[in-house]
Design a binder for these strands. Sequence first.
DNA 1: TCACTGTTGCTCATTTTTGCTCATTGACGC
DNA 2: GCGTCAATGAGCAAAAATGAGCAACAGTGA
Lengths: 252, 252
Amino acid sequence: MLGAERRKRLLHAVRAEGVAHVGMLAERLDVSPSTIRRDLSALQAQGLLNRTHGGAMAEAVQADEPDRPQRSGVASREKSKLASAAVEHIAPGATILVTGGTTTAAMVPLLEGIERLTVVTNSLHLAVDLARFEEISTVVLGGYLRHREMSLLGHLTRQALEELQVDEAFVGAYGITEAGISGAHVDEAETDRWLLSRVRRITALVDGSKFGRSGPVRIAPARQLYRVITDGSAPEDELDALRAAGVDVVQV
Amino acid sequence: MLGAERRKRLLHAVRAEGVAHVGMLAERLDVSPSTIRRDLSALQAQGLLNRTHGGAMAEAVQADEPDRPQRSGVASREKSKLASAAVEHIAPGATILVTGGTTTAAMVPLLEGIERLTVVTNSLHLAVDLARFEEISTVVLGGYLRHREMSLLGHLTRQALEELQVDEAFVGAYGITEAGISGAHVDEAETDRWLLSRVRRITALVDGSKFGRSGPVRIAPARQLYRVITDGSAPEDELDALRAAGVDVVQV
DNA sequence: TCACTGTTGCTCATTTTTGCTCATTGACGC
DNA sequence: GCGTCAATGAGCAAAAATGAGCAACAGTGA
């Protein structure tokens, strides 16, 4: 069987049944578990399914369920702490770029009160959250809507940013290593990478669990990062490597 | 059972019943109480439920989301009828522009099933509603967010549309007379006017109460309109005037 | 034919998950 | 305030899953 055909069947199985186990898939498609794992990783990189331990699921348990957005302020304490540290450094009158993600979303309710703030985003979720704060001037970068993440991507998104002058960007990430931050979904990360290449100061918000993990697409190299905000669970050696690369590391 | 699957079920059980006990969950899912506790902790860290002693409670439902009160499908019958007539004329493979408004929003759930449809909009509400339909390719025009109407305006919005080729536009209006359609808010109407000037076919959705009323800003003159969809309560003489201007008038 | 590339299955060290134990904590009744 | 008991979280060991590395193999083009 062709590899592409196998991946197609595999995706179909996951979608049809909601969940699938590596062992079961290996047996059904008559290939080794290693191959199944590689296939699942590839499909995840394309954002077509969610990898989990032991298999994969069509829909993640995570907060990005389109059904129950339950956004706006209902961030976990951990994310709120990171967000709080990030917001501290924002000056009145600043123009900031905030990309999509649950960690960066936690910043929104904390932005209230910063004077003459302009927030630029390519995330629909962020934009909707921001709409509640009349004093915050909000700019949405247009683009093709990626349904699952509610983010806007592509040529239009990039073109819109060209028109703007952004002081600082705040981003989440799928993973962070001494090489830099990386994303899980190819097209989303690609747009993120482009957006960040236009911004001088980049602050990444990553909890400790993201360290040492690397997604398929690099979003920004370490030397491009201005600041990394993380929590106490981040491994010291990784933090040292970042510091050596000139990154300002903040632990909360 | 997959760990992630178990957490999903667990969350579902908590949400369905409001509260859940560790012991009960352990028995039902056939795992140890320790595992249940770990799962509950993880879900709490994601802000998806509230941990209590002995079990967990569903996350308090955010009472009044100021954002989407009666959006998404809960349109009045009148508006749905207009929307339904509008959707009838959309061909497979079309690219349509839909501006913000409660009448046009009623079109969204009816768009499902039209093949290879691309919807362009400058309304955040529309975009969020459209995100539920994976088959619909959605493009959001960027711009400055107008908080009250959740619409995107200004230079970026116009620039984004320049990049696109739209077959037909569907718009609501504050008022309609033989002179054309008009809007209530200056900056919003201005952007609408610009957007519509780039589209050949314009279909306006206006219920009978809008006739004879005129807002401060003209959005499009009658001769620019391709079709007007209205209901039985529209005054005949106004409709005749529109017909005389070459507009296709549809009454539902 | 031969060098090269991409895929597959296997091995193995590492990571993650899970159930258990046990000291500590919190809830509840008196 | 106090005692009782269930619930909890940390620590631990076993089992399962994982990813990196490696060799074998098939297909491609010179």
